[in-house]
């Protein structure tokens, strides 16, 4: 009974891929299983895990948010410049979170109220936010922040890095929100059958907005960690962040058409990406090959998921 349930779980494909990769890497590189490296993997995956949480909420409603990378840049630049101008660290963090939630709000508003396709909306806002960050910062990176801020990126408590702790807290809260609250419940329902949800008198606008704002919020947190860790905010920061988050979510069997998926799956997907990148660096694989291999692994994970789906439908 339990075996079948596990096999049918949407996280099956990505879990198998993760376990397989883990075993493979520990054979290929003796350094892989060292304590330092395992913590290293967690540290490097922490931002992706946090990003993939918000992305899951968006994708289960049948939407997508490509602007995540740009929101992170806007938020990072704003925090950095505030701190540079002597604003209190906490205030700067709050401002950074508010701006990223606001960016999510803009996306949500355009998608839900004006009912434009999320792909196009966020493609446009990706460019807009990026442009805004470049204009605001004059294209130059901003460096050097107070120690209390850097602590969020490079500090550690009981030898567990702070970003890992933040990611853990985010995961616990989001799993609860996703499984147990109206937001998660209705987000899935909206992605499953929008018309049916409308016919049940549920305020789609409200929940869709919330979903995009949650995504903005998690992006803001990821931006804090990245900025603190690098001790700098780059206006040209990592634009691929958004796509990596989408990849992590999709790998876990979450369908881009919405209605299915889970936060846990997305977390496993992010870990898979983390292990891949880490393992390949250990094996001296050049970054071009890394991109290539990651693409192949995404295909394999999605393929396993398809086999699982076909199997469970036949039953």
């Amino acid at each position: 009974m339990k075996k079948i349930n596990f096999f049918r779980a949407p996280e099956f494909g990505v879990s198998v891929a993760l376990i397989g990769l883990f075993i493979l890497m520990s054979f290929l590189s003796p350094l892989f299983l060292s304590g330092y490296n395992l913590i290293n993997i967690l540290l490097q995956s922490s931002t992706y895990m946090i990003l993939s949480i918000g992305m899951t909420f968006v994708i289960v409603t049948g939407g997508i948010d490509l602007s995540v990378g740009s929101i992170a840049v806007v938020s990072g630049i704003l925090m950095a410049s505030l701190m540079k101008n002597g604003v209190n660290v906490y205030l700067a963090i709050i401002a950074g979170l508010i701006i990223s939630i606001f960016c999510g709000f803009i996306n949500g508003f355009l998608v839900s109220k004006i009912s434009l396709p999320s792909f196009i909306v966020t493609l446009a806002t990706m460019s807009i936010f990026q442009g805004a960050a470049l204009i605001f910062s004059g294209g130059l990176p901003i460096y050097g922040f107070p120690k209390s801020f850097s602590f969020l990126g490079i500090g550690s408590v009981l030898s567990v890095p702070v970003p890992v702790i933040i990611a853990l807290i985010c995961i616990i809260i989001s799993v609860f929100v996703f499984k147990k609250t109206k937001i998660g419940h209705y987000a899935l329902a909206i992605g499953d059958n929008r018309q049916a949800v409308k016919m049940c008198g549920i305020n789609i606008f409200k929940y869709e907005m919330l979903v995009y704002m949650i995504n903005g919020f998690t992006t803001g947190i990821a931006a804090i960690i990245t900025t603190a860790r690098l001790n700098s905010a780059e206006p040209l920061g990592s634009m691929s962040m958004g796509l990596d988050a989408v990849a992590a979510v999709v790998m876990s069997g979450t369908s881009l058409s919405g209605g299915t998926g889970s936060v846990t799956g997305a977390i496993i997907g992010s870990l898979l990406m983390g292990v891949l990148r880490n393992g390949m660096t250990l094996l001296n694989v050049q970054s071009y090959y890394q991109n290539l291999i990651i693409g192949i692994v995404i295909l394999i994970a999605v393929f396993i998921d398809k086999i699982r789906n076909d199997y469970s439908y036949k039953k």
Binding site: L188, A189, D192, N193, A196, V197, M199, I202, G259, T260
Partner: peptide, 15 residues
């Protein structure tokens, strides 16, 4: 316009 097809029976009844 009626059912959420990917969702459980319970969710559909209580939607």
């Amino acid at each position: 316009t009626g059912l959420s097809l990917k969702s459980s029976v319970a969710k559909n009844i209580t939607l």
